[in-house]
Design a protein around this nucleic acid. Structure first.
Length: 520
RNA sequence: GGGCGGGUAGCUCAGCCGGUAGAGCAACGGCCUUUUAAGCCGUGGGCCGAGGGUUCGAAUCCCUCCCCGCUCACCA
């Protein structure tokens, strides 16, 4: 191929090329992970989106078939009860059991993890991602991992040699790559491996490792390692997935860099090559803290969608994944306008340059790129909303379409921007306004202004503009003081739109209503 | 302590496969036949964290150091 694209998804895809000198026999597998102990959050969304971009870039370069797996770790045990879930007492009783064998705290699905998995699938499908869902529990039970498990059992000592040095002294004593699920009490975090029996593909264990709130039942027994009766621990589990599904690509947060290294060594030990890795930086909240998974702090996908388009979120997520960035409400307006600016620029870019644009990646490899050739943008809309203090979308749109007639060609998009701008205004601008009560003198002037407006039959901007001046002079007050009072009382801000323009825009009736309220 | 990222205008950041700095907001000034501006036009403002190196030339590449943040060292 002649062109070298420098956009990061292409750099990633290019890193993958040396693995496939020949056309691969099976679709090239890209994977994302999901921990179903909580609801899917924006990090999960970001990971799936970014992986999709790399996948598409790879397809663009090679035309090889690919697949994307969303893998859910639903065999993991519950170590502590999340704060944001109902039925905490019930969950407490199931600590240490795999998520897939704990009842749904919401009571609607067949298990805890089934609920979370359902949410994930709903979430990803709703936003149009292409992926195959894979449950860890189903994979274990079905035997997807059996071959890999047998290799791990044979080479248990070597796996230990890799993992033990990374553990604390205390854990080293009884740590094993294998976590048997106790046949009697069903817990996975209370067991301890006593002996491995590689020739029988089995191991001996004891359920006597009570830890904190996780009890043990004291049972001792022997279990085959296959068929989902035994799972493997974290880094080993990751390696096992890579091994069993021939994962070629997986990205992860920078907190997992060390884990990925360990897992890579394990998968090599098993005889396969680790996937091409890529780590991304974490998003920070307003205070510069990592966005929490369990506590509903920070921006969620659904919340973003209320204030701006999905595309603007994707645009945000596309930018510099390896740089730490703040993800907070105040980044939304800028992101929307940056996105719209890119959208305008995109159509003017030469064909061969387009794959370097975020727009190309966001809109299905440049196949479905909308147009938005108008100067209207989100900040204009927000300013307008603040300026006229109106909450009628039609009114705002009217003004915009007069302001720039070309915006009429994008009416639907415009209305969406307006609706979302109004949401943003309501939730983030309005709470910061400080309305004050008018003085008696000001009330009287508002009343007089209202009467003048009522007595006037035309709708000439200049004539209406003259009214506040007349009222102010008649009361021996500086016009500036009256304007200021008007803005502070009606808009909750020191400044506002030109009076005549404002009345013309919102209509005399509405203006009189506002003045009437202010005067009472 | 290890790993990762950042330190550029008052604030938030872009620029970083080298050619003497940009945007948005804020500030200031001006404009729409009257003093009010959602809007428009314009202005000011930065030894680009510190030092050294490579180069004709470095915010941009290399080295050292300082500061800030995140993250792993317990668990998946």
């Amino acid at each position: 191929m002649g062109v070298e694209y420098k956009a990061w998804p292409f750099r990633e895809a290019q890193g993958l090329l040396p693995r496939f000198r020949q056309h691969p026999a099976a679709p090239v597998a890209f994977q994302t992970g999901f921990g179903p102990s909580g609801l899917p959050h924006i990090g999960t969304f970001a990971e799936v989106a970014r992986t999709t971009w790399v996948r598409r870039a790879f397809e663009h370069l090679t035309h090889y078939p690919t697949r994307q797996i969303a893998f859910s770790d639903d065999m993991d045990g519950l170590r502590k009860v999340p704060l944001n879930l109902p039925n905490a007492e019930m969950l407490e009783a199931h600590l240490g059991r795999p998520l897939c064998s704990i009842p749904d705290p919401y009571g609607c699905c067949e298990s805890y993890s089934a609920h979370m998995n359902g949410k994930l699938r709903e979430f990803l499908s709703h936003y149009g991602f292409n992926y195959e869902f894979q449950s860890s529990n189903e994979a274990y039970t079905r035997g997807d991992f059996d071959a890999g498990l047998c290799i791990l059992l044979e080479r248990e000592a070597e796996v230990k040699a890799i993992v033990l040095p990374t553990l604390g002294e205390e854990r080293q004593a009884d740590w094993s790559p294998f976590f048997p699920i106790c046949e009697r009490c069903g817990r996975v975090y209370s067991t301890r491996v006593l002996a491995c029996r590689p020739e029988e593909h089995a191991l001996d264990y004891a359920c006597d490792r009570a830890d904190g709130r996780i009890p043990s039942c004291g049972h001792r027994g022997t279990l085959p390692i296959t068929g989902g009766r035994v799972k493997v621990g974290w880094k080993v589990d990751w390696a096992l997935r890579w091994y069993s599904y021939d994962i070629a690509y997986e990205m992860y947060g920078k907190d997992l860099i060390d884990s990925a290294k360990i897992s890579g060594r394990i998968v090599k030990l098993m005889g396969k090559r680790p996937p091409h890795g890529f780590y991304y930086e974490m998003f920070l909240d307003e205070q510069g803290q990592k966005i929490s998974k369990s506590v509903g702090k920070g921006v969620t996908v659904d919340a973003w969608i209320q204030y701006a388009s999905l595309e603007s979120l994707l645009f945000f997520l596309y930018q510099t994944p390896q740089r730490q960035r703040r993800l907070y409400w105040d980044v939304i307006p800028k992101s929307v306008d940056d996105y719209l600016a890119e959208l305008r620029a995109y159509h003017g870019a030469p064909e061969e340059e387009r794959p370097n644009h975020a727009i190309w990646h966001i809109h299905n490899m440049g196949r479905e790129v909308p147009r938005f050739d108008t100067s209207v943008n989100y900040s204009l809309i927000n300013n307008l909303i603040v300026g006229i203090g109106a909450d009628e979308p039609g009114l705002i749109a009217d003004f915009l379409e007069r302001y720039d007639p070309s915006s009429r060609n994008y009416h639907a998009t415009l209305m969406d921007l307006v609706a979302k701008g109004l949401n943003y205004y309501r939730d983030f601008v309005l709470p910061n306004k400080h309305y004050r009560r008018p003085t008696e003198n000001e009330k009287r002037m508002f009343g007089e202004l209202r009467e003048r407006l009522a007595a006037y039959s035309g709708d000439d901007e200049k004539e209406m503009q003259a009214m506040p001046f007349e009222v102010a002079r008649a009361n021996g007050v500086e016009p500036a003081a009256l304007f200021k009072a008007f803005y502070e009382v009606v808009f909750g801000q020191e400044r506002g739109p030109r009076f005549g323009t404002f009345v013309k825009l919102v209509g005399k009736e509405r203006a009189m209503e506002l003045l009437g309220n202010a005067a009472s």
